[in-house]
């Protein structure tokens, strides 16, 4: 019989209890168990970065973590980034302004990765940003709009703080 566990975790500030098969990845659980389909599975071997979410504040690949491992932890997905009233946050707004997305598939992983990165590196250089997102593959944009968005968001966030 399938090996399952009861888990409890907080996602975007909301607590959830679920019974999960232990082989289920955190990404698949968020998408299909909780219906939070903003997190995208792009390669399922930890390279493309589309599935990146924050667990206890740190950006991680949700395809390389089992849902059961998130038991008791706090998860933030792309759905949890905007302001409570739905307004885009500074990073999202910068992506919009700088054409930082085309098809939108890598975008959730870019946003979650950069959210953690900019928190720890509030004044990055272009080189820093390019290295930070080197674990997130985008096939559409050539990265330039994303880099510009991140640099602009960093400025905005510094002004705001």
């Amino acid at each position: 019989m399938a090996d399952t566990r009861d888990i409890e975790l907080t996602v975007n500030g909301e607590s959830h209890a679920a019974n999960v098969e232990t082989r289920t990845s955190l990404g698949d659980f968020l998408r299909h168990g909780l219906g939070l389909t903003g997190t995208h599975m792009g390669c399922e071997h930890g390279v493309c970065g589309a599935c990146t979410v924050m667990v206890d504040g740190e950006a991680v690949r949700s395809c390389l973590m089992l849902a059961v491992q998130a038991n008791g932890q706090e998860v933030t997905t792309v759905e949890g980034l905007a302001e409570d009233d739905g307004t885009l946050n500074a990073l999202q707004a910068a992506f919009w302004k700088h054409h930082g997305l085309q098809c939108g598939f890598c975008t959730p992983g870019m946003l979650t990765s950069l959210t953690a990165f900019l928190r720890d590196n509030p004044d990055p250089s272009e080189r820093d940003v390019r290295e930070a997102i080197s674990g997130n593959i985008c096939r559409c944009t050539g990265y330039q709009g994303i880099v510009d968005a991140a640099l602009d968001a960093a400025k905005t966030m510094q002004k705001g703080s």
Binding site: G46, E58, R61, F117, G135
Partner: peptide, 9 residues
């Protein structure tokens, strides 16, 4: 080593 997201784990 990898990327900051993989170094986090």
């Amino acid at each position: 080593v990898g990327h900051f997201q993989t170094r986090n784990r």
